[in-house]
Write a protein that binds this DNA or RNA. Sequence first.
DNA 1: CTTCCTGCAAAGCCTTTGCATGAAC
DNA 2: GTTCATGCAAAGGCTTTGCAGGAAG
Lengths: 155, 155
Amino acid sequence: MMAEEQKPLLTAANKLREYKIKNTPQRQVILSYLMTSHEHPSIEMIFNYVRGNGFSVSLATVYNTLQLLIDHNLIIEIASDSGGHMRYDYFEEPHYHVICVNCNKIVDVFDKSYKRLETEAMEKTGYQVFNSQYEVYGLCPECQLKLRKEKADLD
Amino acid sequence: MMAEEQKPLLTAANKLREYKIKNTPQRQVILSYLMTSHEHPSIEMIFNYVRGNGFSVSLATVYNTLQLLIDHNLIIEIASDSGGHMRYDYFEEPHYHVICVNCNKIVDVFDKSYKRLETEAMEKTGYQVFNSQYEVYGLCPECQLKLRKEKADLD
DNA sequence: CTTCCTGCAAAGCCTTTGCATGAAC
DNA sequence: GTTCATGCAAAGGCTTTGCAGGAAG
């Protein structure tokens, strides 16, 4: 097992140091949650996670911290549409998201080929491109079953 | 010149009829605005546009109408990030968006090759895919100049 | 004639802000 | 010791809701 997986809080602390962001317990917990879970959590999930692990935190701090991490390009914001709540994701390896429109579960696909379009975008528009995001919307396998069953029950 | 370009309100009315959506002046104006302008307007821009053209409308109706059009897959919502305001776009021909992070201008690129990834997403995740969106973030040519000038003025 | 859209105002919710305390470096 | 993060509570802004009147089909 890799050291990083054993001490996520330490890994997060190091990452903060690397980016010259002042280390606080709240920031370490929030970042380590984003780095290790693959839940793409919402603000509320993050807030509950931090408190649930015995750390004090306020919503204001969650908002502040997420904005800070976004500004440093450590994480990205995902518009999860149905429900209208933003979700957050540690973004080291380029990947795209497949989002369930029913339960909002988000799955990663680690294929960065979509990044190739950044060049085309630059050439066709003259924009100086920094970044791009690809998102796919559909129904996850569980929700496909659930909805099929609900429909069957109506018959 | 094509007929559609001459009578945008009529075209919008027909589109509503085609989708079996009850025709009202507000809906016609909103849809025709989205179909003809390439501004990817925000809620507020739509509200002002409708009133500016001599039609009565309330914010509640703008929200209702946009949600209705989204539910019928006539338009899509774009998360324009900086500023946090949603933008709306008539979405007939598949295309992706290049968004200026400084002035929020959104430009279309009509290359649907990104849609090919939907198949991969389906195979890799088991999701039943409906839809996908690709967005590129950068600086538009005008803002590149503006920011370069501002920087020069500091010297 | 029935359905259901509009628009107002109120309610609701999420996010941001200001400021005092206290922690990080 | 200085800087700056935290957290509370209050303010702010956007979006939704309920309901009465009225338009669309």
